[in-house]
Amino acid sequence: MLTSGPVIVIQVPEQLHAAEVCNFMQELGPLLESNRPRIVFDCSQIRSLDSAGVEMLLHCLEEALKRDGDLKLAALSPQADVILELMRVARVFEAFPTSEEAVRSFTTVLADAVGHPAAWHPTVFGELGVVKQAG
């Protein structure tokens, strides 16, 4: 049976360097270990991103894909966009201008796949830095 939880929108901190990555990953760990995690990273506040931050994004994507989920980026600042391009990972991620569009892209894909709109469930990840929950 195809089941999935809600799309979780997470606000990425302004600075994404080695120090911030550890804290962020601690919060994110349980979410990535769930079944079919569907995650949107709202990157609108990112002002500074280094290779540790990019590694973290790739790690999250990898974990999500491993569990048949996905990770999408939304509202990338021009600065973050340039860094992702410079580090040759921009094409790896699906990016959307807004979080709403990123969330919608999940529901569209799912609706196409199962033939009915996705059901939304309450999340257990409320305390994990989740700022918005679509549904």
Binding site: D50, S51, V82, I83, L86, M87, R88
Partner: peptide, 27 residues
């Protein structure tokens, strides 16, 4: 393994000419 396109790199600064932004790379 980087991809530097349409830019000027000078020390730890990179100017992307397409977007018109200068970034300071701390890494």
């Amino acid at each position: 393994g980087l991809d530097l396109s349409h830019s000027i790199a000078d020390g730890n600064h990179v100017l992307n000419l397409q977007r018109g932004i200068v970034l300071e790379i701390s890494d």
